[in-house]
Amino acid sequence: MTLTHYLVLAAILFTIGAVGVLVRRNAIVVFMCIELMLNSVNLTLVTFARAGGTLDGQVMAFFVMVVAAAEVVVGLAIIMSIYRTRRSASVDDANLLKY
């Protein structure tokens, strides 16, 4: 058991999140996948902070959480406003703009 385990786990979580963005249609779930990606970044940061013996990683993880919170508020508001009109939270339904 080394720190590499944490890092690889984070990489896998990040990938799963990224793939989730590509395969899920519900905008809110897509957004949750992005949250998963951010979380895996946090795990990476915390692990590197421990490895390097500096606290900067933890502080950055903290910032990531704050930014994520702001992003969530804006994102969910946008998704809600589009839902109120279209009665659908599917990202595939938003495709009037193309080519």
Binding site: I82, V91, L96
Partner: peptide
């Protein structure tokens, strides 16, 4: 269209 633009921009931007 405008809302669609916002949602696309947002999701891809966050990604």
């Amino acid at each position: 269209l405008s809302q669609e633009a916002a949602v696309k921009y947002f999701l891809l931007g966050a990604f």
